[in-house]
Computed example of a mutant assay.
Amino acid sequence: MIDVHKRVWLKAAALTVVASAALVGCGKKEEPAPAPAPVTEAPKAEPLKAAWIYVGPVGDAGWSFAHDLGRKAAEAKFGADLQTTFVESVPEGADAERVIRDLAQQGNKIIFATSFGYMEPMLKVAAEFPDVKFEHATGYKTADNMRIYDASFYQDTYMAGVIAGSMTKSNTLGFVGSFPIPEVLRNINAYSLGAQSVNPKAKVKVVWVNTWFDPPKESDAAQSLINQGADVLLQNTDSTAVLQTAEKNGKYAFGWDSDMSAFGPKAHLASAIADWGPYYIKSIEDVKGGTWKTERTVWGVKEGLNDLIKISDMVPAAAKTKVDEIKASLKAGTFEPFTGPIKDNTGKEVLAAGVQADQAWKDGINFFVKGVEGKVPSGK
């Protein structure tokens, strides 16, 4: 028989072992759970850098103003994903080459040159920067990384001609021309064809200023046309001077490139405009999406780039109706202002009856159509 004292001692020892085991178990330090891996955000893509070069000041109307509205439309579309810059009043020639090269060196991945005379300088710089996309407005030469885009202003000027032919009292219309290049000759000829479609007696006089933007020269040219009997004026220059000169003389005129109705409300019959925003947005999307390719794009009324807007209440209802019909046909692609028979102002047929002019024909215009007085100057 086990001694009582021994049993007590054994029991106490057993309890001590159990307690010690429990204390060891309770006192075991648990390993901490592994910390979650830090969340690292993917590096944010740098914004695409795009630049524009303008031949005139941005101002508040005209060609460069219209292109800058297009730049702003692209900014609004892409927000922080697009960084834009522009340089205004850049002369065509050596200065343009220097500016275009500088914009490429600044890291711009697409550069828009918005005047005809920028073509050769841009072509030269494009060869030096194969990873940059270059776009030239109104030209005809391309490269692997340079393409061209243009507007069909002649569609606007045809409709303006319809209004001018309906409004004139003297049957003499005036046109202030910049340079005698196909782009401008198309507009003069379409203006005459539109006028003659409603008024066969209408004739067009042209004064050349050999500049895109020079308000004093434009004003002098407009005054010269008025002195020669012109009572409705149109221009292919970039300022509001022609419209303002017409208003001072109690004559009529049109806005050009952008809405100019506020600059000569008593003279303003309508404004021939270009909305460049949709094209610039498409072009930047092409670069961002890797689908940019060398091509020539010519948009007009059908694509929403060109339009004749703010037609005055002074314009007869019949002329407004005809313009509406023409505009609808242009949008539908069923009307081409340059459709034969068309003769030049010497009587020579330049487009046969029933034939619609193709782009090559329009690009090669070097003549005045019937109704336009004088000869096309040689040179630029």
Rank of each mutant, 00 (worst) to 15 (best):
E295H: 02
K251E: 15
K288D: 13
T40C: 03
V372H: 07
T240F: 10
S115K: 02
V99Y: 04
V369H: 02
I226E: 14
K322V: 10
K133P: 01
Y118P: 02
W63R: 07
W212I: 09
A160V: 03
Y280G: 03
V301N: 00
A51C: 06
T245R: 14
F254K: 07
Q155S: 00
R296G: 15
I148F: 08
N189F: 10
R296N: 04
G177T: 08
L269N: 00
E303N: 11
H136D: 02
Y191N: 07
F254E: 08
I326Q: 01
G354Y: 09
A127Q: 14
A241Y: 13
I148L: 01
S312G: 10
D81F: 05
G174T: 07
S197I: 06
F335T: 01
D150H: 13
R98V: 15
Q105P: 06
P47H: 07
A61E: 10
D131M: 06
A221N: 12
I309M: 09
A13V: 14
T237N: 12
E373C: 09
T297L: 12
Q155L: 05
K343N: 13
V184M: 11
A318F: 00
A222W: 11
Y191L: 08
G27D: 00
K293A: 14
D324N: 12
M260V: 05
E325A: 15
V207E: 12
Y280E: 07
V301E: 00
V204P: 08
K11S: 10
W361F: 15
I284M: 14
A12I: 14
V99W: 01
F367C: 02
L23D: 08
L10K: 11
V18I: 15
A221T: 14
